[in-house]
Each structure stands twice: as C-alpha cells, then as structure tokens.
Nucleic acid binder design. Structure first.
Lengths: 148, 148
DNA sequence: TATTGTTATACTCTATAACTATA
DNA sequence: TATAGTTATAGAGTATAACAATA
C-alpha cells in the first residue's frame, strides 16, 4: 500500500517488531535448512548433542527449554532421518542415550553454515556495527534480568 | 544450572534470541493488558480503528496483516466486551462498518499506556541509546528490503 | 464474476495428564 | 516414591476452502 505517512503507532511497537522480525528470521532459516531436510527447531538439538557428546532425552529437553514430551516426537523425526540414534543407558535402563550419527554430524555442520548465511541475509539491512549491537541487545533483553 | 562456560552456540543464534525476546515481550504485554481485559493481539485492532475512524473488517485485516477469517473471531470478542461495534455499511451491504465504542477508545488509551510501561520494563537492561538502536534495527530487519 | 463476512476444517506448536518400566 | 520415556489429549494460533449475500 506504501501509505507511509499514516504509519500507525502499532507498527513501531516492540511487540509487533519482534514478532515480524522473528517470523522473517524463521522463514529465512526454514528456507536455508530445507535442502538438508531439517526444520529450524531441529538444528539446536543437533547442536546440543554435538556439544554434550551424548545426552538423555531429559537432559537435552531441559537444556533446550522444551519439555520432555515434545522431545519424544522431535527425536523420533531425527531418528527416522538417521541423524541421531537412541540406545538404552548402560546402567540406568529408564534412560535413552541419544547421540549424533555420522550423518547427523555432517548435516549439522552443513546446516549450521546454511543457517549462518540466513542470518547474514537477515542482517543485510544493517551495517556490521548495528548488527553486532542488535545481537547483543537481544541477548540482554531475551531473558528477564533476574532469571536464567 | 548456571553452566555459563558451556553456553552452546545455539544460545547466541538470532533465531533463538528473537524467539525468546519475542516471548518475553509477549508475556510482559499480556500481564500489562490483563487488567484491561484485552489480549496483546487485540490492542493493534483498537489502534487501527482509532486511526482510521471506521473500517470494514477486510480493511482492518489487511492493514494488520491477518486474514479476514481470523478477524471475524477477533472482532466477535471485542464486540462481546463492548469495545467495538459493527453496523452494516450504508451503501455496500456486503460490508460491516467497524468502529470503536466510547469504552473501546477509553480502554485503548489506558491499555496503550500500560503497554508502554511493559516496553520500558522489557528494555530495562539497555541504556537509552541501545534501546533506540534496538527499535530502529528491528524496524529495518522486520521486513525484507524489497517487500511489504 | 468478484468481494465481504462467515463457518467449518485442518494443521502446527505446545502443554498437561496419565501410563509403563525402571530406580 | 520418584524419574525417564511414552502416549493421548487438548488448547492456542493460524491458514484454506466453501458458502450466502451482495456488488
């Protein structure tokens, strides 16, 4: 519509800006990851398994801030794609030990590069200084000052 | 957990930061607006009706970027609360003319102040300069350079 | 034919409760 | 008793398709 002079107040509200910035980043990430057959929400799981080496489903879920019931379906999908494997824990047989497969590690590395490119595209309207400031500011506001 | 030295890469990704920043802002807004009986998603509707004076449901939906089928339920809720009214358009009887009621204008003004306070709380970890830069940077990245 | 409002439907994401098997 | 994984279910939120009334 290009009706810029009647740019209502709600367009400059943080709630609106954050929602739409997040939607655009999510869309760019989804596009970037599509060739690797993974969803944006699955990449952090690959990251954390790589970081921890191996983890129980509970551990992974807690670290990522999703609950353990959601983790089941997420890991089902990753296991179906051959990116992670589950085996029973050696001593505590209630647990699963979840690890990246070779293919999972490979996809993770390549998907991470694709996601980096998506971030660069997202940040393209900003110069390097503003981009760095944005990332730091988001880190500061993303969690309440007194919580995790 | 406070395991800050193993702060995995995914915690500094824009997708993660934007999602959690948005969640926190949404939560603060929801809290701020609860006393006024409206949801965060309803305030922009009040804003746009105030801005336009009157609008068809289609107009309001298009401006706000929601589709017209979602607008129906949103306006049903606002009408039930007595904040907006619908009457048939004088000449085009397919349309509804949607306007703020007196109570709707009052709630809008007070809710806007509450939402401003929520934004200030959200931005509290930043100094004034960083807060302004954040808002401008989000405005720049919220929409692709060539779209909207 | 096209448009406005509406309803019904479906799909995603997430959260809660309850079950099982182990500890 | 408590915990890990699982399943079933339900709730937001949103999108698509089809319909009635009107243009």
């Amino acid at each position: 519509m290009a009706n810029d002079e009647v740019d209502g107040r709600w367009r400059t509200r943080l709630g609106y800006l954050l929602k739409h910035a997040q939607l655009r980043m999510a869309e760019l990430n989804a596009q970037a990851l599509r060739p690797y057959g993974i969803a944006a929400r699955e990449l952090p799981i690959l990251f954390i398994l790589d970081e921890l080496g191996a983890a129980s489903q509970q551990e992974a879920a807690t670290r990522l801030g999703v609950d353990r019931t959601s983790m089941v379906a997420l890991l089902d999908a990753l296991e179906d794609k051959g990116l992670v494997s589950r085996r029973p824990h050696a001593t505590d047989r209630r647990r699963n030990v979840v690890v990246l497969t070779e293919s999972g590690a490979d996809i993770m590395a390549r998907a991470a590069r694709a996601s980096d490119a998506a971030e660069r595209e997202f940040l393209a309207p900003l110069d390097a200084d503003d981009a760095n400031r944005l990332r730091r500011a988001l880190g500061a506001v993303a969690h309440p000052p007194d919580a995790d």
